[in-house]
């Protein structure tokens, strides 16, 4: 399960999520979209989510943190 989901259809590649992530768990794929690369290191701080100007990031708690 992807705990940080970025909707590429809405994403404008502004990179605010990638730039600001304090744990540096995001990366940029070949098409230039940000994605969650180091899932096990995400700490659910929500900084990507609250900085996204297009509201295209969703954070989901996985079963192991329920």
């Amino acid at each position: 399960m992807k705990v940080v989901k970025i909707e590429n259809e809405k994403c404008i590649k502004c990179m605010k999520c990638y730039d600001n992530c304090p744990e540096d768990v995001l990366a940029v794929n070949e098409e230039g979209y940000p994605y969650l690369k180091y899932e096990g290191e995400c700490w659910f701080c929500g900084i990507c989510w609250m900085n996204c100007p297009k509201r295209c990031i969703d954070i989901k708690l996985p079963a192991s943190l329920w």
Binding site: P22, E39, G40, E41, C42, W43, F44, P62, S64, L65
Partner: peptide, 17 residues
Amino acid sequence: ETPMHWKYKMRFHGHPG
């Protein structure tokens, strides 16, 4: 500070980085 320690390893109250 997680119920399961094996995966989401950076969940601390303070700043993980």
